[in-house]
Deep mutational scan, measured.
Amino acid sequence: KRYRAVYDYSAADEDEVSFQDGDTIVNVQQIDDGWMYGTVERTGDTGMLPANYVEAI
């Protein structure tokens, strides 16, 4: 699945990823209600991200 960031996010922990509004997130997997795991296409960084900061595309 592919998602697009709708807000900027700065990683708060080493297992999270930072991204900017408009970034595409690929290979996304749902972890639980609030978190997903995926790769930021622009940077190649992979990690956890907050589900409410992205939307499906």
Rank of each mutant, 00 (worst) to 15 (best):
K1P: 12
K1R: 11
K1S: 11
K1F: 12
K1L: 13
R2C: 12
R2Q: 11
Y3D: 03
Y3I: 02
Y3C: 06
Y3N: 00
Y3M: 06
R4T: 09
R4M: 09
R4E: 06
R4P: 05
R4S: 07
R4V: 12
A5R: 00
A5L: 01
A5Q: 03
V6W: 06
V6C: 13
V6T: 09
V6Q: 09
V6R: 12
V6Y: 07
Y7V: 10
Y7P: 00
Y7I: 10
Y7M: 15
Y7W: 11
Y7Q: 15
D8L: 06
D8Q: 09
Y9V: 01
Y9S: 00
Y9C: 05
Y9P: 01
A11P: 06
A11T: 05
A11L: 02
A11F: 03
A11H: 04
A11W: 04
A12N: 12
A12C: 12
A12E: 11
D13I: 09
D13W: 11
D13A: 14
D13M: 13
D13L: 09
E14Y: 10
E14W: 10
D15L: 13
D15F: 14
E16N: 05
E16F: 08
E16T: 07
E16C: 09
E16S: 07
E16P: 00
V17P: 02
V17Y: 03
V17Q: 00
V17M: 03
V17T: 04
V17K: 01
V17N: 00
V17I: 10
S18D: 06
S18Q: 02
S18I: 01
S18Y: 02
F19S: 01
F19K: 00
F19G: 00
F19D: 01
Q20R: 14
D21N: 15
D21M: 15
D21H: 15
G22E: 03
G22I: 02
D23R: 02
D23A: 02
D23L: 03
D23K: 02
T24P: 04
T24K: 06
I25E: 01
I25L: 10
N27E: 08
N27T: 05
N27P: 03
N27G: 08
V28C: 12
V28S: 05
V28P: 04
Q29L: 13
Q29T: 14
Q29V: 15
Q29P: 01
Q29G: 07
Q30G: 07
Q30D: 09
Q30R: 13
Q30V: 13
Q30I: 15
I31C: 13
I31D: 04
I31S: 06
I31F: 10
I31P: 03
D32R: 15
D32Q: 10
D32K: 14
D32H: 12
D33A: 12
D33I: 10
D33C: 12
D33L: 10
G34H: 15
G34F: 15
G34R: 14
G34M: 15
G34K: 15
G34I: 15
G34C: 15
W35L: 05
W35C: 05
W35S: 04
W35R: 08
M36G: 01
M36I: 11
M36N: 04
Y37V: 09
Y37C: 08
G38S: 00
T39L: 06
T39G: 02
T39H: 04
V40C: 03
V40R: 00
R42N: 05
R42G: 04
R42H: 06
T43I: 02
T43A: 02
T43Q: 02
G44A: 05
G44M: 06
G44R: 06
G44I: 00
D45L: 13
D45A: 13
D45Y: 08
D45V: 10
D45P: 03
T46S: 12
T46H: 09
T46K: 09
G47F: 03
G47Y: 01
M48C: 09
M48A: 06
L49T: 02
L49W: 04
L49Q: 01
L49Y: 11
P50T: 02
P50D: 04
P50A: 04
P50S: 05
P50K: 08
P50N: 07
P50Q: 06
A51D: 06
A51I: 11
A51N: 06
A51G: 08
A51S: 13
N52K: 13
N52D: 11
N52G: 12
N52T: 11
N52P: 09
N52E: 11
N52H: 12
Y53V: 07
Y53Q: 05
Y53A: 14
Y53N: 05
Y53H: 09
V54I: 11
V54K: 01
V54G: 02
V54W: 02
V54Y: 01
E55A: 10
E55H: 09
E55C: 09
E55L: 11
E55I: 15
E55D: 07
E55S: 09
A56M: 13
A56Q: 12
I57L: 10
I57C: 09
I57W: 09
I57D: 08
I57F: 10
I57V: 10
I57R: 04
